Amino acid sequence: MTDNARFTQPDSSATVSSQHYWLMKNEPDEYSIDHALAAPDQLMGWNGVRNYQARNFMRDDMQAGDGVLYWHSSCAEPGIYGIARIAGNLRVDASQFDPADPYYDPKSPPDKPRWLMLDVQALRKTRPLLIAELREQPELSNMRVLQKGNRLSITPVSQTEWECIIGLLEGC
């Protein structure tokens, strides 16, 4: 199910120019920004998404070149630890079919797979931008990741939120 029309080769640019922005969560002991930066071409297949809304963002809205805030979750200090971009290559997440994989889904048949993945390219590590600092910014008051009960692994980020965060990171 590779969608070659949406795949673009990643460039080596350290900047993101895009009209869409995302926050993508990953556990640092599984795949931190350091792991991503050390990967060949700094690319990783973003797999293991098991929420329909997050999957639909990947399938319907994410485009190669979109900016990504790389969030470390389920750790002592959750927050933004890097900048990445969507590199494309939307495809079926094979982990859903492997009973030995933690992301195995016995209800997902191979002829009608439920779960997708795509490639994300790490661009740079940033200083940790933690929840407390994000909450201090009025421009970020509506940011989904800061809302009570939000557990989605992928959320949209507005252009205003993106610009505020980039400004915070460049100001250090």
Rank of each mutant, 00 (worst) to 15 (best):
Q9H: 13
P10C: 12
A14F: 11
T15R: 11
V16S: 10
S17E: 14
Q19T: 14
H20I: 01
W22G: 04
M24T: 02
N26P: 00
P28A: 03
E30Q: 14
Y31L: 09
I33R: 00
D34P: 00
A36E: 02
A38F: 07
D41T: 06
L43D: 04
M44A: 12
M44C: 11
W46P: 07
N47F: 11
G48N: 04
V49Q: 04
R50T: 02
N51H: 14
A54P: 05
A54T: 11
M58D: 02
M58R: 04
D60F: 05
A64D: 01
D66F: 07
V68K: 03
H72C: 11
C75Y: 06
P78M: 07
Y81P: 00
I83G: 04
A84V: 01
A84Q: 00
I86A: 04
I86C: 05
A87G: 05
G88T: 02
V92T: 13
V92D: 05
A94G: 07
Q96R: 05
F97L: 07
D101F: 02
Y103G: 05
Y104L: 11
P106E: 08
S108F: 11
P109I: 07
P110T: 12
P113E: 07
P113R: 06
W115E: 08
Q121G: 09
T126I: 06
T126N: 09
L129I: 05
L129M: 11
L130T: 13
I131K: 08
L134T: 05
R151I: 06
L152R: 15
I154A: 09
P156W: 02
I166S: 00
L169C: 12
E170K: 15
G171L: 14
